[in-house]
Design a protein around this nucleic acid. Sequence first.
DNA 1: ACGAAAAACCTA
DNA 2: ATGCTAGGTTTTTCGT
Length: 565
Amino acid sequence: MYIVLAAPTRSGETSDDSVAQLQPADSSFSPAGDAVVVNANQLPEAVRRFEAEGVRWVWEETRAWYPSLLDQGVTIERCHDVSLSREILRHSLFSAHTPYSSGLGNHPDDADDPALPRQLPPAAPSPLQGSLFEADSGPAGPGCAEVLEEFAGQQHAAANSSHPQRLALLLAAESAGALLAAEMEAAGIPWRADVHEQLLVSQLGPRPREGLRPVELERLAGDLRDALDNPRFNPDSPQELLRALHRAGIEVSTTRSWELERQEHPAIEPLLKYKKLSRLLTANGWTWLDTWVSDGRFRPEYVVGGVVSGRWASRGGGALQIPKQIRDAVRPDPGYAFIVADAAQLEPRVLAALGQDSALATAARGLDLYQGIADQGFGDRAKAKIAMLGAMYGATTGESGRLMPQLARTYPQAIGVVESAARTGEAGGVVSSYLGRGCPPASERWLATQRTSTAEEQRRADNIARSRGRFTRNFVVQATAAEWALCWLAELRRRLRQIAVSSPGAELVFFLHDEVMLHVPEAMVTEVSRMVTEAAVAATRLMFGDIPIEFTVNLMVVDSYALAK
DNA sequence: ACGAAAAACCTA
DNA sequence: ATGCTAGGTTTTTCGT
């Protein structure tokens, strides 16, 4: 049984304060029974009542409904997010021939050009907010009939695709991810502002007045001016800094730290220290703390489907780039601990599965896949790692490039997968993840670059083609790894919900590509740790069935994020 | 004066 | 070992 939740359509039974319509539907996606129209006060109880019957919710956008339900203490088990499913089906090769997918249009345009920077769309307005704050215009968004019709089209597209089970799993996993994202946003990452502040004070000095440098930065700026014998320049300006360095005889072409590190000059040491501390101040200093941390929680926003590969993006506070430098501020509440777990070498393991490469699967048998490759006669571990990463990223030169032929001979099946993806991309084609997420098509602009006449233009065109090849090469691995991670999350979420009634309190609070953090009552640490491991086994089975490849999970119980890894 | 782009550095 | 994938944020710089 499905319940469609959407904005109410104007009719006799709706009143001015109606915010939602709940429409039951049966397994053939037809309306079953009367729709219920509710106002904001009635919505939580109505949802709770249906949820107790074990329904699956269908709505245009999880973001629009779930956060406010969570605020009111309502959680749900399963949903189908129509908008996220739409974007998957728009690009999926599996369903391209179905009426629904072909009707969406999948026209290559420059917005889909991976060479162009992507910008995230602004957060969608919630229909609930619309009704609460805009008296004259009622709740926005499509009504139940439209949502149900599109849902039916999506189900038909998945069922009639070339891989019905895989695509259905992908849509379910993406929707589960949307629920979890909202739940993690509601939970927030436990953050000790006092510990963070202590870190800042010990490295930068006391918080300065607005517009002034902290004492330690001021001191280093002074040292730098002395060392360069240059009394007045702004070290925060790359242009001025570069000119000052040149005037002191330091020949660098940029002010990047790794280029500066190679220079011998008394100014380099204070400069590198200055850049390091300046970064801490501007990216994660007092302003950041004021802006993003409140009530002991850092609350970023997750953008499910925000990355073409299916990884999540985030908005606000740089949640996916918390520097190691400040992770000590991430501390559990009293009586709680963190479980931090990550999938060990997820991408090469995924590649072994994609290529059904038994030699690589054997190397992945142990905890350390790169050591496994080394043990199969590939030299040392470092070499094995560089070669493998090069294969997945498309390295052509240097040590990584030189190791490629040997790697291709040792693991022909696995390397064949990425090589084939690269050739498809170079030719302007599209590639697919294991569960059916398609990469964006080549844009008109891209195709135009390939139609050339002169030799000079041809060289440029080849460069552009190889760049797309690297993108599609990496896409098949990164997108499939993202799917595994999503299945892992969904399995873990399901297990946590099973025990939540009798022993509540364990929450997922952070997710980063192949890593999760849970905030767990100390008494539950053992039980939840087992669930994290079991969820990984279940995710592997769910995606790939019974395959001889292990997806190892590294797990640590810590009382500071700084102690993980 | 304002907004886009670039530079820099952080993450997996 | 910064040559190779995907992102976000801040500040400075540049263009209108």
